[in-house]
């Protein structure tokens, strides 16, 4: 079991007029090797939740366990936990600071006190993982494009060899091509099979294609938790809590409402195309009544 969250509560600015219950009785278990999408609009508590995963925030009540260790542990054990869970924050490229890409990626492993050879292996491996060509390693990170900077930042976390990789809004602010690139890179990192991946996003379209499981947060609670199909079948409810269901899913809903006999659980353009082609063929053969 990679992650176990039990009855987790968290309150911001407790005792002040601005007191806000950010997390309200959260119970989640995530197994090794899962690829989970965590979705919710701004203020739903998803960033607060991921900050509990490596002990940046401690529960006000309840428990968070990472690989059987509780996040309230201190000293060496907490350090170990922070190595286990790699957190990539929003706009991680703002955290780059070193003279070269190589040094930036090496920063974490160097602080672990690893031997030089091991650091070198990790840096090159992490760079390959995120699709950075070797010649970039000697450049200043500040001379790179936005998408490349972001990949350097992600590589810095991967070089720590975490068993759980958490990415908070990794595609924010990128253009469609950049989004596509980062997402397929994350997918291939997951496919290498060494990590549990949690992808935090408010874009259902991005996440739906990749993950095996979706957790939807709303007002500090888990609103839905299941396979992509299970969660999307509650499309109208999701829209009511301010999430944008893929446009094509709204279209399919509309077509079903207008009387087409098609599968309502469709959220990619590709699947919608195939489903409609099947339907067109059926009615061409006269299989469907008018």
């Amino acid at each position: 079991m990679a992650i176990k969250i039990e009855n987790l509560d968290y309150v911001y600015m407790q005792g002040s007029p601005f007191e806000k219950k950010a997390l309200d009785n959260i119970n989640i278990e995530i197994k090794d090797g899962e690829f989970v999408g965590l979705i919710g609009h701004t203020g739903s508590g998803k960033s607060t939740l991921v900050q509990h995963l490596n002990g940046l925030l401690k529960p006000h009540s309840g428990h968070v366990f990472i690989n059987e260790h509780e996040t309230t542990e201190k000293g060496e054990k907490l350090k170990k936990l922070r190595c286990d869970v790699g957190l990539v924050f929003q706009y991680p490229e703002h955290q780059l600071f070193e003279e070269t890409v190589y040094k930036d990626i090496a920063y974490g492993p160097t602080n672990l006190g690893l031997p030089k050879e091991e650091i070198d292996i990790r840096v090159r491996d992490a760079a390959r993982c995120v699709g950075l060509p070797p010649e970039v390693l000697d450049k200043s990170p500040f001379d790179l494009s936005g998408g490349q900077k972001r990949r350097v930042a992600i590589a810095g976390v991967i070089a720590m060899k975490p068993s759980v990789l958490v990415l908070d809004e990794p595609t924010a602010g990128l253009d469609p091509a950049g989004r596509e690139e980062i997402l397929s890179q994350i997918k291939s990192i997951y496919d290498e099979g060494n990590m549990t991946v949690i992808l935090v996003s408010h874009s259902m379209e991005d996440v739906a294609r990749l993950v095996n499981r979706l957790i939807v947060m709303n007002e500090g609670k888990v609103f839905a938790d299941g396979t992509v199909d299970e969660v999307f079948s509650r499309g109208r409810e999701l829209r009511n809590i301010g999430l944008n269901v893929p446009q094509v899913n709204v279209l399919i809903d509309e077509l079903v409402a207008r009387g087409l006999n098609i599968n309502p659980n469709i959220y990619t353009v590709e699947n919608a195309k195939n489903e409609l082609i099947e339907y067109f063929k059926r009615i061409k053969e006269g299989g469907e009544n008018a």
Binding site: D175, P176, A177, E205, P246, Q247, V248, L251, V269, A272, K273, L276
Partner: peptide
Amino acid sequence: LGLDVPQVTEL
């Protein structure tokens, strides 16, 4: 050009 069109247009 590396741009999208609305999903319904693409479909």
